[in-house]
Each structure stands twice: as structure tokens, then as C-alpha cells.
Design a protein around this nucleic acid. Sequence first.
DNA 1: GATATATGTGTAC
DNA 2: TACACCTATATCG
Length: 273
Amino acid sequence: MPEGHTIHRLAAEHLRMFGGRSVRACSPQGRFALGAARVDGRPLVVAEAFGKHLLLGFGDEESRVHVHLGLFGKYSFGTGVPPAGVSAESVRLRLEGEGGFADLRGPAACEVLEPGGVKRLLDRLGPDPLRADADPEEAWRRVRRSRLPIAALLLDQSVVAGPGNIYRAEVLFRQGISPEVQGRALSAEQWRGIWDDLVVLMAAGVRSGRIDTVRPEHMPEAMGRPPRVDDHGGEVYVYRRAGLACHVCGTPVRARELMGRNLFWCPGCQRAG
DNA sequence: GATATATGTGTAC
DNA sequence: TACACCTATATCG
């Protein structure tokens, strides 16, 4: 679930459900008991996503509740009273308002940040393709002088904030760029292509709540099979399709580990620099 | 029941 | 590069 589009959806969902109204906050699991007590009873006035980070602001506090889902974190929303039972014991943060509740389980981070901590967090994030204030040139300045492969740069949140393993694989496929190409070997046009496509793909992800990729117009017709509907719940061309024929050119999709993450690409469609 | 896996990141060696 | 961490779900025996 948790690439940047998910977090932007969560921010919007928080505002819809709680925006401007006071909420009750608690931590059934206990590990965020102090933080929850601190915001309990205040109105939720800020819910904003920066890459994969969610920031919630309550009342006139300048501090923010900072949530990062990590690999396993999940939110569940509902109307009415949150369900009791064993599954409630794993809820790190629960917000309840008149409109419903939000349960957070398994986050990598759930903490209160003072303004200085918020600034440090935001300072180490690159531009987020889903934010109107994002400046792709800021990312390009990092990319263009890096010897790291573009596949590594796209997962570095200090270069670009938001894309995860699926968007990385799919955007490089759609742009026909080999994951191995060094950042400094990319042209400005290629970077522009990657960025603009991230904006399109991730905005679609925010709307639909899943990651779907479609054949870009500059690519030849697909071979008649639909893209894989992955366990993640979306239609993709290369992500987790190792060994299967590319839907565009028929070449087997390849996979390898790069810096601890699974990387997928089509050697037929994705050329060097 | 045990084990493997996952869309992520931070720290230590 | 390895591992630690957080949780749920799928798959295997």
C-alpha cells in the first residue's frame, strides 16, 4: 500500500472525516499513549502529506503528529464506533470524531514533532510529484551529478519524495529507460519525462487508491494480454513479473536485488541512457 | 502452526 | 551490506 499516493489520500481522508472538529485520541496498543493524550480533545486542523510522511496538526499547536507507515503500516477508517476485540490491541493511534474513526496499525513512525523536528524532516525530503509546490529542478540537480543508477535515485526520498518500488519500476518501464543508467548519464529531457510521468501516474493513484500503469502512447501496442493485476491490487507492466513475457515486446521481464530492494525491468523495452 | 513475503527506513559494522 | 523494526496475509506442511 504505502507509496506517496496512499499518504496523500490519507491526508484528504483525515480532513474529510475530522477536519475542524475536535477528536478523541488514544493508543489502545499503548506505545503512543503520551502523544495521543497530548492531542486528545483538540480539533484536527492540519492533515498534509509530504512524500510518504503524514503530518497532523491539532488546535493551535505548532507541533505535528508525524506518521510514517513503513512497509507494514495501515490505516482503517470506519463510521460509528470502532470495533472492539483482539484486533483493537494492535492499534497504535485511534482518532474518533462524530463522523467516524481512524485506526493506525504497524507504522514505522508515530510521534509528536516540535517545529524544529518538522523542519528537519521536510529539509531532508526532495520534491514530491504530488505537491503543487514541488520543483523538479531541485531533484534534477541531484540526479544529474550522481553516479548512482537512476533506479537507486528514484527510491532516495531526499532526491524525490513519494515514489516507492512499484512507481520506480513502472515509470522507468514507461519511459523506456534502463534502471542501470547513472543519473549523470540521463538527459534533461529524460529526467523531465520521468518527473512528468510520476506526476501523472501518482495523481491517478491518488484518485483510484491503487497503482495502475497503462501503455504509454509512444510504445507499440501491447501483445493482447492485460497487464498483471498484482496482489497489490493494480495493473502493472513489470513490477513482480519476473520471468514473464513483457506485454509490449515479449522479452522476459528481469529482476534483481539492488541495494536491498527488488528491481524489475524489461531489457527489451528499457534501453541504456 | 511455522514460515515466507511485502509498496520502507534507519542504524551499525 | 546486514540487520532491526513494525503487522498482516499467503502458502506450506
